[in-house]
Amino acid sequence: MIKNTTNQTISSQEVEKEPSRFLHLSQQGLLYLALIVILVIYTIPGLGVLLTSFKTDTEISMEGLWNLPHALRFDNYVNAWTSGDVAIYTRNSFLVTIPATFCSILLGILAGYVFSKLAFKGSEYVFIFVIAGLFFPPQIILIPLFQLFNKIGLYDTIWPMIIVHTAFGLPICTLIMRNYFSAIPIAIREAAIIDGANEAQILTRIMLPVSLPAVAVLATLQFTWIWNDFLYPIIFTRSVQARTIMVGLISLQGQYSVAWGEQGAMAVIASIPTLLVFVFFQRYFIQGLTLGAVKG
């Protein structure tokens, strides 16, 4: 399943000859025109938020949200970071996202290894039991978890988000790790056992080093989903001290006299980490989306 990228390069070479057959030059031009029109409309929302984040509030009330800013001003960013609670929200987001990403992948590696290489009688049913979680709408677990975290005193801390993301991320991590491990020849494991290695050594010294692409896929996917999550912090937290940046965004919402520019700056700040992940790890991200498409 992971071999998607190689397929892609091969078939894009094959496609090369196709346009000459199907399209004349004028058609090619039309195609570009269509593509660019679609793209402009498509990117407007993103451009809007960028433009706004560089404008002063007077500029916005005088000239509207959608004109070009007069100068590249970073005032909104500085204000949002220093006067608002953006710094706290951002810190919380990292404190939730990094451990939850790490833990869900760790658990997925352990479970995925068992289901691929240490299968026992009935393990396929346990596997289905775990994978079923891919399809659960999160609403079904919210009320009991809210009660539970309230009772054990974790409500309004960052812990519920870490725990729930770890548990709910297990199905996708298990699925992708199992599929990757399954492609590794079983003979490697048997040779290591003859050399006296135990399963923990085989997993950490042999299986894991060759499975780093799968880990990268999961790391990009999990980081993006957990960072962008809005539901769990809304349910499990109440105060600035525990809330993540996505919920922080709406703290500036409300009255009609909105601090547009600052809100824009905050939206950009909130998007930077996932944008960076996307820019640098796009290959893994896209691979993960096709592999874990069921999760979305």
């Binding site: 658990l107 346990v126 677990i141 919210l142 725990i163 548990a167």
Partner: peptide
């Protein structure tokens, strides 16, 4: 080893996903 490896994943999944589901 299968039991050792599966213990934590299954425990966390059961406590924080399956049991809440049944409670709902």
């Amino acid at each position: 080893w299968a039991i050792i490896f599966l213990f934590f994943p299954l425990a966390i999944y059961t406590v924080f996903v399956i049991m809440p589901l049944l409670s709902s």
